[in-house]
Design a protein around this nucleic acid. Structure first.
Length: 799
DNA sequence: AGCACGCCGACT
DNA sequence: GTCGGCGTGCTC
């Protein structure tokens, strides 16, 4: 039997199956989807079995060394999905497989040197290396490698390549009775009279026939481990290592919730979904509901139905660690049937959650982007909450969009996909309008609570009238008012777009990174300037390096700065600040939110991370400090993102009995995305933005693909990009526009110059082949000259 | 990605 | 004469 194996070498030349003989003894274990260790040249590496064949064109086949799994980690569906991913994203097969699995299953490689003959066969100056051990790590022999290599050819030492698992299954020693209760009793009689500890242990097992963790047993009975050992030796007790899961929510109790009664609107929406569920068909729904309109309850009850039908469910949420409330809702309804996968977990914890899915111990997975690959085999429904979120697009290879994967998987399982949002992406909304997706509307908030009133404040006007602070007079008024009424406030700082940079007020000099074409960010905590792209650090300049002026200071507002200012204006206000600094510690996020919920603070101040999911009854005022910082980014989606963000943030106010108010501060009050977010008029915004997209040939009217070329030499990059652009032009139809070559918006990162070519097209069956040809053609130069070409067929970041 | 093989410059 | 630079090609 010959196995086709995809090897763990992410390179163009090795991006195909290699044939290996399956040793007879392994024929039962080696199945498609099993990871194996195979010899590859002089080394050993990991590979994935994708299929079998009885013949090979290749002579001199090698044998598979050993399997790494007893059961496949990728089932037939996921193997196929891997092929599809490879084709869609132009990535390597191996990368596609690895992205579908928890990182813990990625192999770790170790290179070692082993002494083969007696020490005295070795030149004297090398002997000390092997004094302690006959095997040392390759890096430990630094400086002697050349000599050792010579020894290796003589055979005194041998170079070993090892493939290691990254994470061990967590196992704990469990003890149980090996014989019957009666037998234990008779054996107890025969123990020496003074063997009281042993008798106590036997008594315990006579009472409790179940197995128990050794550590626990020892602490209950207060006996030494040797007592257990001797009973095991006598054959009365059984000692075994059982796999236990690292459960991140272990010590948490989730209050059980029951399905709520649905409103007439919810009822109407869910009936369509349930019908599709019952008919076993693939269909995509857009659940378009304003903030607080009860989308989650629809998710919960749809999943309920899927479970009742014996099926499973995937729920994607944007970066779930940021919404503990969401986890609570799912765990509350489905208890132990839920696995949670998000970036806040350690790789061991992620692996354990994944194992629960693989072993069919859960029915529902709630997680961020990569949870879309959960290895369920009987998927009944896929839900993508906050469908418009850009974090569903992976920004490195394979550059997939979870929404596309979801639809692909739903096609395989013939099940519904629900895309939920109050502010759908234009792509999705356009498809719903065309009838490709079925649109379900929830236009009203639950319990008919009115949407909050929104006021837009023109900060230029404030400035003209002499208010130079970052808070408008209206906002200060509002803050004071809520403090008095003991109501809560959310202050939102839109940081994306500009962070704190240092500029000279006299000459306009900006402190830039020497390696990247981007300004350095001021970090108050470490009193340093840092580059977000390459990590370069320097001190904060006290005088301008250009003109020696002392009027050099930082611009832009960080949350710390706002907190400080807030303290000056409203010293009595209790503020909780949420940003990367205060939430980096595990569980910090949740604790801060709990404190806020418990009323330990009046104001919650934060960045993007507080924009969604917050649902506290006492919030009656939401302030947006700077609405328009994103509008000026070189990104055709910036209006869309601004609109979405403002709408989401506004939705935090007045979700329960108390009416809500929103104050949006902006320097561009006339911009339609600000104006229309104030009235929460998505439909109007959609029309407006669609006109612009059509005029500029952007999605959803056109598809786009972005080729980015980078190298240390500008001229080389420019000329290569030029050749690529011309080539693409020659291969595509007249319908497509190929723009370039131009320098990327961030024209240099880590001293590499960056050029790009943007392709806008409607239908180009040749495109993928053309792009593949480019990668193939430049493959040599990519390895030998360090040229980088990255292709993103549906980019979300154009920088 | 590694690693070996192979063909040209500066050294004991 | 050889050590070693990294360009080229292969890995079942």
């Amino acid at each position: 039997m010959i196995a086709k194996v995809i090897v763990d070498v992410p390179a163009k030349q090795t991006d195909r199956a290699f044939d290996y003989l399956v040793p007879e003894s392994l024929e039962d274990v080696i199945k498609p989807g099993v990871r194996v260790i195979v010899p590859f040249g002089p080394r050993k590496i990991q590979g994935f079995v994708i299929g079998f064949s009885d013949r090979s064109e290749f002579t001199g086949l090698k044998e598979i060394i050993e399997p790494m799994d007893l059961t496949p980690v990728l089932n037939e569906e996921l193997l196929g999905l891997g092929d599809w991913l490879t084709e869609q994203t132009l990535s390597y097969k191996i990368s596609a497989f690895q992205v579908m699995l928890p990182a813990a299953l990625k192999a770790k490689y170790e290179k070692k040197i082993k002494l083969r003959q007696s020490m005295d066969q070795l030149p004297e100056q090398l002997q000390f290396l092997f004094e302690k051990n006959d095997t040392i790590l390759w890096n430990e022999a630094e400086g002697y490698l050349a000599q050792l290599q010579k020894e290796a050819t003589k055979g005194t030492v041998e170079v070993l390549y090892e493939v290691k698992e990254r994470v061990k299954k967590k196992k704990l020693k469990h003890i149980s009775a090996k014989v019957s209760k009666e037998e234990l009793m008779t054996q107890k009689e025969q123990l020496a009279a003074n063997a009281e500890k042993q008798k106590a242990v036997l008594d315990f097992f006579i009472e409790n026939p179940k197995s128990i963790e050794q550590r626990e047993l020892l602490s209950i009975l207060d006996v030494p481990a040797t007592t257990i050992k001797s009973l095991v030796k006598k054959g009365l007790l059984l000692e075994e290592d059982l796999e236990v899961y690292r459960d991140p929510y272990e010590d948490r109790v989730f209050e059980k919730t029951k399905p709520l009664t649905l409103t007439a609107e919810q009822e109407r929406a869910i009936s369509s979904i349930l019908a599709t569920l019952g008919e076993n068909m693939q269909k995509v729904f857009l659940l378009y509901g304003v903030t607080s309109s009860g989308k989650t309850e629809i998710y919960l009850q749809s999943i309920q139905r899927a479970i009742e039908m014996g099926k499973e469910a995937i729920v994607l949420v944007p970066e779930i660690s940021l919404t503990p409330q969401m986890v609570k809702r799912f765990k509350g309804r489905f208890g132990n049937e839920v696995a949670v996968l998000h970036s806040g977990l350690s790789s061991g914890e992620k692996y354990d959650e994944w194992r629960k899915i693989e072993r069919k111990e859960v029915k529902v997975v709630v997680g961020a982007r990569s949870a879309i690959f959960a290895p369920f085999e009987n998927l009944g429904i896929i839900i993508i909450d906050e469908e418009h979120e850009t974090s569903y697009k992976q920004e490195d290879n394979p550059r997939y969009h979870a929404r596309d994967v979801a639809i692909q998987r739903a096609n395989f399982h013939q099940c519904p996909v629900i895309l939920g949002s109050a502010t759908p992406s234009l792509e999705t909304f356009a498809r719903a309008q065309k009838g490709v997706y079925e649109q379900l509307n929830l236009p009203k908030r639950m319990n008919n609570q009115a949407l909050p009133s929104v006021e837009i404040i023109d900060m230029r006007e404030e400035l003209r009238e002499g208010n130079r602070s970052m808070f408008s007079r209206a906002l200060i008024e509002g803050l004071k008012d809520r403090l008095e009424k003991k109501q809560q406030i959310v202050l939102f700082l839109n940081k994306r777009g500009h962070s704190s940079f240092v500029m000279c007020r006299d000459c306009g000099y900006v402190d830039n990174c020497p390696n990247c074409d981007i300004s350095l960010t001021y970090h108050r905590f470490s009193q340093q300037m840092k580059c977000h792209y390459c990590g370069y650090e320097s001190y904060v300049p006290s005088t301008c390096p250009e003109c020696n002026s002392e009027h050099i200071r930082y611009f832009g507002t960080g949350t710390q700065k706002v907190e400080e200012e807030l303290g000056k204006v409203l010293p009595e206000a209790r503020v909780i600040r949420m940003d990367v600094d205060t939430t980096s510690r595990k569980g910090a996020h949740e604790k801060l939110l709990n404190d806020f919920q418990d009323g330990k603070a009046d104001i919650l101040l934060g960045t993007q991370m507080i924009a969604k999911g917050l649902d506290f009854p006492n919030i009656t005022l939401v302030g947006v400090l700077s609405a328009d910082t994103m509008l000026h980014l070189p990104d055709f989606r910036s209006s869309e993102k601004t609109f979405q963000l403002l709408t989401q943030v506004s939705g935090r106010a007045g979700r329960h009995e108390l009416p809500g108010e929103v104050i949006i501060q902006t320097y561009t009050p006339e911009h339609y995305s600000v104006e229309l977010a104030a009235t929460q008029n998505f439909d109007h915004f959609f029309e407006r933005e669609m006109m612009i997209r059509r005029a500029h040939q952007y999605p959803p009217y056109y598809y786009i693909a972005l080729i980015t070329v980078s190298h240390e030499n500008v001229a080389y990059v420019a000329s290569t990009t030029d050749k690529i652009t011309k080539f693409v032009q020659s291969k595509l139809s007249r319908e497509a526009s190929v723009l370039g070559p131009v320098a990327s918006p961030i024209s240099r990162i880590k001293n590499r110059y960056r050029y790009q070519c943007l392709i806008k097209y409607k239908r180009e069956p040749n495109l993928n082949q053309t792009l593949k040809t480019i990668l193939e053609h430049y493959q040599q130069e990519m390895v030998s000259k360090g040229l980088q070409i990255s292709i993103d067929v549906n980019p979300y970041i154009l920088m």
